[in-house]
Write a protein that binds this DNA or RNA. Structure first.
Length: 704
DNA sequence: GGCGTTTTCATTTGT
DNA sequence: TGAAAACGCC
């Protein structure tokens, strides 16, 4: 394999073999290139079989891309290699080994919402008030406990007050129910393999022997269980290679431990440390700005990025009266790049900021894709169908059962379900099992019949699992429950949309079957449970991309807009701790360094949170951390609102669906908009179904 | 008791 | 703005 397209540091990182290696890979320093070349080097030059390599990436997409690139570099079949996220690698390990600890290999993976409903049920079962014991809060507490590897026992005797005492009970019961449901939550995916390793040394030994070389990407964002996982596997042979950048550690709130990277040597012993400090991505201006920001942090390893790239353009700052005007201004600036939209990104701190920008882009006819927010697999209709599938695969999954036992409505309401649930609890059996014994239940004939039909529906589908393709079973199921008709008879735009999504889901199953050559629904479920929005993102689509800064990690764009730079929003408000502020600052650093050519920063002097109350905001302190000389138009640090700010409050007239008034034709509805701004061609339907095509700027329309 | 409708309430980030 | 709880009608 050729190494001549690597710089000397990169080459060192690739060819150094033996013992722990830590690579500090700054933003845009060719980290992915190093990782792929390293793996190719191990296979081609060292002769290590691919099945002896474990590489952990941050997203499934990154894993896929890495595989593709390695195939291009080596002349081997690498299908045996293990590349994936921590969660997907662990899920596969659990499929093989989870029976050792009393689960069965068809376990269901619960997402946060599922976990929350289990917690809620537990709280209710303890007869506690859900107002006082907020399920969401307790779900987060449990998650944090697992991320710091504390099992329920840890909390048994530390109960100071009533709420803490109950936390122990809730956590304990929660874990019991998960096991009874043959389900694991996201955190279990990371911790259960460790439990298996601990109780079954032969299993740990197997993986220690199998994975002779371990590589970890985005090492700065590993948390405690993830660290333990790779440590268990590699602490004997110590052939571990981790790549990370402490300046880009942005998942502290999820238990990521920045000390994993800062104290790498302490854990693994004598380690080789290599710093990649040449940046190939950004202009000097951008790097300079990013450096001035991040170097304010105290808790960081010493290093500084440099580049041979040009100075490039200065950074723009956009000031707006409110979030609506901000969106308009950002939209105006985006127009300049409308022929290279796939190179534009709009980044923000919170998903809720996307909507208003989306509105402007839609009105202006700019193609966009949004990452995050309501994920495809999080939509209600999709989750409903998935719940059917989960229940078919795993009858113990009571969360899924409760979701769909009365969907579409079949006359089984809250009271009936409560009855069956309490019997199931008493007999410590699953709800599904109890449905079989309905004869003994105190229920009406109608409900008994309904329950019986439901039972048979699931059971019959399950019986087909070994014979039929998953997609066939699901298609059949959808027909049996008459789902198309359920949505069709509602006859709303929304319902039609939902039905379309369900059709897309089935196509997704078929696509999975043909691409993975796997017809099991278990495999499909696992894939979608662990899929992120980034994984579905198509970077080649001719559209700009909007996403949170967290999602943008690892990506790059020519033109980057960072919006909502206000105190309280970015950095976001919480009970401020220096560590939190440093993490917010790293987040800003990540945002800046996504850009190759040009950065535009924007903030609004007032903002409506939800509903309507407008609150005055102050520009983010981060703006002042960038030296003036790098900024095109420094705006003074005041938060007063002048009357000028109201001048662009003209209502947007051209929008599909708006009712407008025309001097001659009277009132009409805009039914189509072709083009952007004043020159847009509008199709308007006036009284008596008269259709007119008008140019916006000549039409002189008034919005009603 | 079920089911559709209205009200309330909460909004960081994500596997 | 949406989802979940509360409400009120069949």
């Amino acid at each position: 394999m050729k190494l001549d397209n690597l710089n000397s540091k990169q080459k060192e990182a690739v060819t150094k073999i033996g013992g722990p290696i830590l690579v500090f890979a700054g933003a845009g320093s060719g980290k992915t290139r190093v990782l792929t070349h390293k793996i190719a080097y191990l296979i081609d030059n060292i002769g290590l079989p691919p099945e002896n390599i474990l590489a952990v990436t941050f997203t499934n997409k990154a894993a896929q891309e890495m595989k593709t690139r390695i195939v291009e570099l080596v002349n081997h079949d690498i299908s045996g290699i293990s590349i994936g996220t921590f969660h997907s690698i662990s899920a596969q390990l659990l499929r093989k080994n989870i029976s050792k600890i009393g689960y069965n290999s068809d376990f269901t993976i619960y997402d946060q919402q599922d976990s929350k409903s289990v917690v809620k049920q537990v709280i209710k079962d303890f007869n506690l008030d859900v107002k006082q014991f907020d399920p969401k809060t307790y779900q987060i507490k449990i998650s944090n406990a697992k991320n710091s590897m504390k099992n329920p026992d840890y909390f048994k005797d530390l109960s100071e007050n009533y709420s803490d005492k109950m936390f122990y009970q809730i956590y304990l019961k929660y874990q019991e129910i998960l096991k009874k449901n043959n389900s694991v939550d996201f955190d279990d995916l990371l911790t259960l393999p460790l439990t298996i390793f601990e109780n079954h040394p032969e299993c740990l030994k197997f993986y220690q022997d199998k994975y002779k070389y371990v590589l970890v990407d985005e090492y700065q964002d590993t948390n405690k269980p993830q660290f333990e996982f790779i440590y268990s596997i590699s602490s004997l042979h110590k052939d571990i290679f981790v790549v990370g950048d402490d300046d880009q550690s942005i998942y502290g709130w999820r238990g990521a431990d920045i000390s994993n990277i800062l104290n790498f040597k302490d854990a693994f012993g004598k380690a080789t440390i290599i710093k990649l400090e040449q940046n190939y991505r950004s202009t000097k201006t951008i790097l300079d700005a990013a450096w001035h920001v991040v170097s304010r942090n105290l808790n960081r390893a010493d290093k500084k990025l440099w580049t041979d790239n040009s100075e490039g353009e200065l950074i723009d700052i956009v000031e707006s009266f409110d979030e609506r005007f901000e969106s308009k201004q950002v939209f105006g600036k985006i127009l300049k790049y409308k022929n290279e939209l796939d190179n534009v990104a709009v980044l923000y701190r919170t998903n809720s900021q996307s909507r208003i920008i989306e509105d402007e882009l839609r009105k202006g006819g700019i193609a966009y894709q949004i990452i995050g927010g309501v994920k495809f697999y999080d939509r209600k209709e999709i989750k409903d169908v998935l719940a059917f599938i989960k229940l078919i695969v795993n009858h113990n999954d009571s969360v899924s059962l409760e979701r769909i036992i009365n969907f579409p409505p079949r006359g089984l309401g809250k009271t009936t379900i409560d009855k069956i649930r309490s019997i199931a609890n008493d007999n410590s059996s699953s709800i599904f099992e109890e449905i079989k014994n309905i004869e003994s239940l105190n229920l009406s004939i109608k409900q008994k019949k309904s329950l019986n039909d439901f039972y048979n529906l699931i059971k019959n589908s399950a019986n087909r699992l070994t014979r039929d393709k998953g997609s066939v079973i699901v298609r059949n199921l959808i027909k049996e429950i008459n789902l198309e008709n359920f949505y069709h008879k509602q006859d709303t735009v929304d319902a039609n949309e939902r039905w379309k999504n369900i059709e897309e889901l089935v196509l997704g199953i078929e696509e999975y079957e043909s691409s993975k050559d796997d017809f099991s629904l278990v495999g499909f479920l696992e894939e979608v449970s662990l899929l992120t929005d980034i994984d579905r993102w198509n970077k080649d689509e001719k559209a700009l991309t909007m996403m949170t800064i967290h999602s943008s990690k690892g990506l790059e764009f020519d033109y980057v807009f960072i919006v909502g730079l206000e105190e309280g929003l970015f950095p976001i408000i919480r009970d401020f701790d220096d560590n939190d502020l440093e993490e917010e600052r790293r987040l800003f650093y990540v945002a800046l360094t996504r850009s190759r050519k040009k950065v535009v920063l924007s903030y609004a002097k007032s903002r409506r949170s939800f509903g309507r109350n407008l609150t005055i905001s102050k520009q983010s302190r981060f703006l002042n951390e960038i030296p003036d000389r790098l900024i095109n138009n420094k705006i003074n640090n005041k938060s007063t609102i002048s009357s000028n700010d109201y001048k662009d409050k003209r209502v947007h007239v051209i929008d599909k669906g708006n009712v407008v008034e025309h001097k001659v034709f009277g009132r009409g509805v805009i039914i189509n908009v072709d083009g952007v701004g004043d020159s847009a061609k509008l199709t308007i339907r006036f009284a008596n179904n008269v259709l007119k095509k008008l140019i916006s700027k000549y039409a002189n329309l008034k919005k009603i």
